[in-house]
């Protein structure tokens, strides 16, 4: 049985078509990433999958329960971590957790045990009786995640879980996601952080303009655009190098400045390497590091959403 099965979901808001015939499945125990630019339809998809919004046509099943007709049964299987840390800031961390558990009708003894465990896991136990108004952004996010797990869900929806967080919170949350995956919990993750999806997801879907542009494992998606290879080069800080000078090299297709490095997009990395090594003495600069890189998931994302290309070998919705 699939954890999630969407069957031709479409959603219209007046004249605006937010989703068009979105179909995909997520297997039990899978960590599934859902990527897309702002306004692509990620939030609408999550709202439909969690039963907050009804689709205009099509439906979705959560562990076999139709989200439109069996909303309550479907929701019992899931935990939801919304994009914003939607906790009650007038209540303590403990009261917030207990409230979330009561909504899911977790028995008193079980919710108190589970609540205490989660506060330990998320490093909030020593502040459990404090009002959450004074919590940092990271602490609020960790509490939100704890509230999403208090009913021990089989499926967890995570909407931008680590966006804008401090390092400690990021590490704790990623560790928890990894642990959930090991425990067989299905995770549906929407994120803008493509590297996060690359590191944590078994498969990702890229949505653009309300349509699924591609679904596959991160590595298979990268394989589909092997033409986007690059040479990453850093010059000694004393030297002055302009991106235009590098763009003038014959085998370089595009130059991206990334921090103190340049990324030279090419279909011929060895040729570019030769050109760069010849360019450096001519320009009076010294190369301090050079690396060749394959396409990243971000390249796939840009290719699919920016250029709207449907690439060969990728499972697409079309």
């Amino acid at each position: 049985m699939h954890a999630i099965e969407t069957l031709g979901i479409s959603k219209r808001f007046g004249d605006l078509r937010a989703l068009s015939d979105v179909s995909f499945t997520v297997g039990e125990g899978e960590t599934f990433g859902f990527l897309g630019p702002n306004g692509a339809g990620k939030t609408t998809t999550i709202r439909i999958l969690t039963g907050i919004t009804a689709p205009t046509s099509g439906t979705a099943r959560i562990f076999g329960h139709d989200i439109v007709r069996e909303t309550v049964a479907a929701r019992r299987q899931m935990g939801i971590v919304h994009e914003t840390s939607n906790i009650y800031t007038d209540l303590s961390a403990w009261r917030n957790l207990m409230f979330a558990a009561e909504l899911y009708r977790v028995g008193r003894r079980e919710r108190e045990k589970r609540g205490a465990e989660l506060l330990e896991v998320f490093d909030l136990a020593d502040r459990q009786h404090d009002r959450t108004r004074g919590f940092s952004k990271g602490m609020k996010r960790r509490l939100t995640l704890a509230m999403g797990l208090v009913n021990s869900p089989r499926l967890l929806f995570l909407d931008e879980p680590t966006s804008g967080l401090d390092v400690q919170s990021n590490l704790i949350i990623r560790d928890v996601i990894r642990g959930l995956n090991e425990d067989g919990v299905t995770v549906f993750l929407t994120t803008h952080n493509i590297e996060e999806a690359n590191l944590t997801c078994d498969r990702v879907a890229i949505i653009d303009h309300g349509r699924i542009a591609a679904i596959d494992s991160p590595e298979r998606l990268k394989e589909t655009i092997q033409s986007v290879q690059s040479v990453e080069v850093a010059f000694h800080p004393g030297g002055r190098v302009a991106a235009d000078d590098l763009a003038a090299l014959s085998r370089v297709r595009e130059v991206r400045k990334e921090g103190d490095k340049f990324r030279l997009i090419t279909e011929d990395p060895p040729g570019v390497l030769e050109e760069v090594m010849a360019f450096a003495p001519r320009a009076g600069v010294r190369v301090i590091s050079v690396n060749t890189r394959g396409p990243s998931l971000e390249d796939v994302f840009i290719r699919l959403t920016g250029l709207d290309v449907r690439t060969k070998g990728v499972t697409t919705a079309d």
Binding site: I52, A73, A100, L103, Y104, M147
Partner: peptide, 14 residues
């Protein structure tokens, strides 16, 4: 405004 209402709307209750 605080988005806590979504928590109620997405709970397994009618």
């Amino acid at each position: 405004r605080m988005n806590t209402f979504d928590r109620l709307l997405s709970a397994p209750i009618s």
